[in-house]
């Protein structure tokens, strides 16, 4: 196998890599922020003693966690046009799907974060006259989020890798950029090799960051 190193030029980076990388990162950030917001709501629903509130959240989370992400991506992409009569585009579809899917995973992280705070903390804030909402807002969630940073980061790394699944609906992400470049230049092996390296560098740096955060957190 001969690798053609002349394939790796600034031109490649500029015209094929940047656009896809930006979308992959955007999707990761949007899915993380959206997933955390809706995940927190789902987590609060799931810990509710009222069945009418906790059951729908449980069903949603369990369904999402039991279906492969690529299927959710495809289903949503195909379902929306048949419901509203027009396509919303691969990118917007990807944003919505990822937020919906990641919410379920972040929900479980946040829920276990909330449950990891000793009951005495709630007792103390309730004893001071705080409402359920104030207790969550000022006492429980800030502590839970702080404990959750490493595991959330780990989930974000997985999420970043999972963004490559949007190839299924043709969105222009990092992987797609390399695929097109590989085809245009007739050098698919070089293209996918570089793609793997870019994914590796980003994910490996992030996981080192998590390690560092964990060790500084313990101190």
């Amino acid at each position: 196998m001969n690798l053609d190193l002349s394939f790796y030029t600034w031109n490649l980076v500029e015209h094929y890599l940047i656009k896809g990388l930006v979308f992959s990162l955007e999707l990761t950030v949007v899915a993380t922020v959206g997933g955390m917001v809706f995940g927190t709501c789902l987590a609060l629903m799931r810990i509710s003693p009222i069945k009418l509130i906790s059951t729908p959240a449980s069903i949603y989370v369990n369904v999402m966690r039991s279906i492969p992400l690529v299927m959710v991506i495809l289903w949503f992409f195909l379902l929306v046009p048949s419901l509203i009569g027009r396509s919303i585009g691969a990118e917007l579809s990807a944003y919505v799907t990822f937020i919906a899917f990641e919410s379920a995973f972040f929900c479980e992280i946040i829920r276990s974060g909330i449950l990891s705070i000793p009951k005495g903390q709630s007792d103390a804030s309730m004893a001071l006259g705080m409402t359920f909402q104030q207790n969550m807002q000022y006492i429980i969630l800030p502590q839970a989020f702080r404990n959750m940073v490493p595991i959330v980061m780990t989930q974000v790394i997985i999420l970043f890798q999972d963004t490559s699944l949007v190839y299924a609906i043709g969105a222009y992400d990092l992987l797609k950029g390399f695929e097109i470049a590989g085809k245009n230049y007739g050098r698919p092996i070089e293209a996918y090799l570089l793609a793997a390296m870019v994914y590796f560098i980003i994910c490996f740096s992030l996981s080192r960051l998590v390690k560092w955060l964990e060790s500084s957190h313990q101190r």
């Binding site: 005495g120 903390q121 007792d123 309730m126 004893a127 006259g129 502590q143």
Partner: peptide
């Protein structure tokens, strides 16, 4: 109104339960 009532009843716990953050 339990929050209102509790705000008038001070409580001290075995394990302190200060808010560590």
């Amino acid at each position: 109104n339990l929050p209102l009532l509790r705000s008038k009843v001070g409580m001290v716990f075995q394990s302190f339960e200060l808010f560590p953050h």
